[in-house]
Design a protein around this nucleic acid. Structure first.
Length: 675
RNA sequence: GCUGCUGUAGCUCAGUGGUAGAGCGCACCCUUGGUAAGGGUGAGGUCGAGAGUUCAAUUCUCUCCAGCAGCACCA
């Protein structure tokens, strides 16, 4: 009976181990270093505890802190358990419910005992201290399999009504396990866990905040307190994370937008941006840039209606699927008496007749682009047709999702749709990949390309999806980007319901990623809206429609730029590219002359003739992130020179006004216009 | 949309059951100063909106709105 188990390792070797062995035993057999470093095991592809015996021959991979993703996940899950243990140790009678890991940490939902108020921020330091004690005690974490009845009874006996309820509802086919922390605390958990609490770094976590949560996310249920923490493998990682948060706060585009007077938001139009002159200068510069890029790439710009009859949206399928996120408008002229209080100050709603005919504000541009394509008869000889639009769209986003420029209700896309034949798809996608690459490089971004594959709920046959996905792969391969350098990755299940989606994820200056560009091959909408072209054979054919964008939305892209550059935009985008500041009023005349010349040279320049000291002016314009400051005093006025101070540089240049103009003219040139 | 927190001057924030304060900014005056804050004076607020409790509400209660954090969502 005591046959040896065959355990295959990632290097291809096979180790024979006695029955009842655990991954920990294998680690020990390989070497003491590995035994110490091992955190968990992957057994036949499933993450397991080190101490859980093999049930037969198995493939084993040992997880160490070098497997960062798994190690972090394990550590965060363990921090969550330690958090729960700490809270119960401090306040016996606290009920625990559920505590998973999150993107950068963990949380646990708990319910304070009746004897005290719900937990608040003030309680966090004490909980952290207790957590450190538990970690330092290095309590072994031991798995046991229990019967359902025993679980339920134990929880009931401990007054843990939530856990008892949950235990009763766990699926039948699942082995029910508990984990002991030492001998005095246990929690029901599927695992896996680290071997002991001591595997966690007591200085690599921090409790961040508390928030309310309902049991099972349902507001009819009891209200719990969710305690959030961030957790890492070591203190260095934690500090880096905290630094990132601090740095991100400094770069927050909402804060910088106010300080730099770029835009504002207010409740009467929440989710829609009021662009100020400075902010709109950035927008116009970007728009002009994108027009040049798209004109150069064979796109034709169009402009389509903001409002279309609801029946058009019904036909395209949007009304059925997204009506609740669309804005609809009754197609009526309000009569004066119907306006009632609406015309006054109380703000009551206008009356809408029950038989009003409804229009909807466009949430996207594609149906209108198909309608443009469908005008007249198109020959295959005209394809591909690339229709672009700086399309202003409205989506009624969930209110809790709105966030500065990043998530808005009104936005403008650098949108375009390419109508082409089946055989042109790969080449069009490849050309787009290169266009996108040239744009992101102009802004200094690195990026990853990912392919979002078919979702569960989808239109079309599996063969169609096979083909559509392969087209995208082929195009990326032909562009030479299906590799690690371009972060190439496929994301199963994340595509749109009608098509796979290539996505561009930019990495910003502090390592965050932003999904901006996308291209999707769509065969559904041309079908629904009956778009056709005449083929070589004289018959009607369905074009493929490629939806694509590079910035995504102007609003969001500007937000990303502000955060990426921390407000110090490249000179060609800076709202104010130079300020001429005087030292004394003797130089006012020369300053005005300099401003006039700079303006004539196409530079966005302002003068600062205020009765202030030069120190004050330097400080103010530096804080305003003006890239170039031209200081003129009596001496410069007499000599026709300027003292040019560039943001971020210590040295200033003493040069003639003409030299300064030449330097600035070069500095403000958009990257695509540089030689 | 869900949960928690927040809403006081243009901005950042303090404060109070008897209708409010600071710093910065702004205006005016003095100062003409050579590279990150010169000095003085002054203006500026229906304390998010509505209702309730109260002799009295910016303050307490409720409802709504918006913002922030997280979650869910993102064609």
């Amino acid at each position: 009976m005591s046959e040896l188990l065959k355990i295959s390792l990632p290097d291809g070797s096979v180790r024979e181990m006695p029955q009842g062995s655990t991954p920990a035993d294998v680690a020990a057999a390989i070497g003491p270093g590995l035994a110490k470093a091992a955190l968990a095991a992957r057994v036949d592809g499933e993450l397991r505890d080190l101490g859980r015996p093999f049930t037969g021959d198995a493939e084993l991979a040992l997880i160490t802190s070098r497997d960062e993703e798994e190690a972090l996940e394990l550590a965060r899950h363990d921090y969550a358990h330690v958090l729960a243990e700490a809270v119960q140790a401090l306040w016996p009678g606290t009920q625990i419910t559920f505590g998973p890991s999150t993107d950068d940490g963990f949380y646990y939902d708990v319910m304070a005992p009746v004897s005290r108020e719900p937990f608040g921020m003030d309680d966090l330091p004490a909980i952290e201290e207790k957590m450190r004690e538990i970690i330092k005690a290095d309590k072994p974490l031991r798995r046991e399999v229990w019967t359902r009845d025993r679980l339920i009874e134990t929880w009931k006996a401990q007054g843990e009504s939530f856990k008892a309820e949950w235990a009763a509802e766990l699926p039948d086919d699942e082995e029910l396990s508990v984990y002991w922390s030492g001998e005095d605390w246990m929690d029901m958990c599927r695992g896996p866990h680290l071997a002991s609490t001591g595997k966690l770094d007591p200085d690599a976590f921090k409790l961040m905040r508390v928030a309310g949560a309902y049991w099972r996310g349902d507001q009819k249920n009891a209200q719990l307190t969710r305690i959030y923490g961030t957790g890492w493998l070591n203190k260095k990682q934690l500090n880096a994370h905290l630094m990132r948060l601090e740095e991100a706060a400094k770069r927050d585009h909402r804060k910088l937008g106010r300080e730099m007077d770029l835009f504002h938001l207010q409740e009467e139009a929440h989710g829609s941006v009021f662009w100020h002159p400075n902010g709109y200068k950035i927008w116009r510069e970007l728009e002009a840039y994108m027009r040049r890029k798209m004109d150069g790439a064979g796109y034709q710009e169009i402009k389509t209606p903001q409002l279309m009859d609801v029946r058009q949206w019904t036909q395209s399928g949007h009304w059925g699927k997204y009506a609740e996120n669309m804005f609809a408008v009754p197609d009526i002229v309000p009569e004066v008496e119907e306006l009632g209080d609406f015309a006054g100050e109380t703000g009551a709603n206008p009356k809408v007749a029950s038989d009003a005919h409804w229009m909807a504000i466009k949430p996207m541009n594609c149906p209108a682009h198909v309608l443009v394509f469908k005008q007249g008869i198109t020959s295959y000889r005209e394809l591909p047709i690339r229709l672009g639009e700086m399309g202003c769209c409205h989506r009624n986003e969930p209110h809790g999702a709105l966030h500065g420029l990043m998530r808005v209700r009104q936005f403008t896309q650098d949108d375009a749709h390419i109508f082409c034949t089946e055989s042109q798809v790969v080449e069009e996608v490849r050309a787009f990949i290169e266009l996108a690459d040239s744009v992101y490089k102009d802004f200094g971004f690195t990026y990853a390309i990912k392919l979002a594959l078919r979702p569960e709920k989808r239109f079309g046959s599996d063969e169609d999806w096979d083909k559509a996905e392969q087209e995208m792969r082929d195009a990326v391969a032909e562009a030479g980007m299906a590799n690690e350098q371009y972060g190439w990755e496929e994301l199963p299940g994340e595509g749109a319901f009608y098509a796979p989606k290539l996505e561009w994820h930019l990495t910003d200056a502090i390592g965050r990623t932003w999904q901006v560009g996308t291209i999707q091959g769509d065969r559904v909408l041309p079908e629904r809206l009956d778009a056709t072209y005449i083929g070589e054979d004289g018959g009607r054919h369905r074009p493929v429609m490629l939806h694509r964008a590079i910035f995504g939305s102007y609003e969001r892209f500007i937000g990303i730029l502000i955060e990426h550059f921390a407000g110090r935009l490249p000179v060609w985008l800076a709202p104010v590219q130079a300020v001429v500041a005087t030292i004394t009023s003797d130089a006012d005349g020369f300053a005005k002359e300099a401003v006039a010349k700079l303006e004539a040279a196409g530079i966005r320049v302002e003068s600062d003739l205020r009765n202030e000291k030069i120190n004050y002016k330097v400080r103010e314009h530096s804080l305003a992130k003006v890239p170039h400051l031209l200081v003129v005093g009596k001496r410069e006025a007499e000599e026709g020179t300027v003292a040019m101070r560039t943001l971020g540089e210590k040295e200033q240049k003493f040069i003639s006004l003409d030299e300064a103009i030449a330097l600035l003219k070069d500095a403000v040139t958009a990257p695509d216009l540089k030689a």
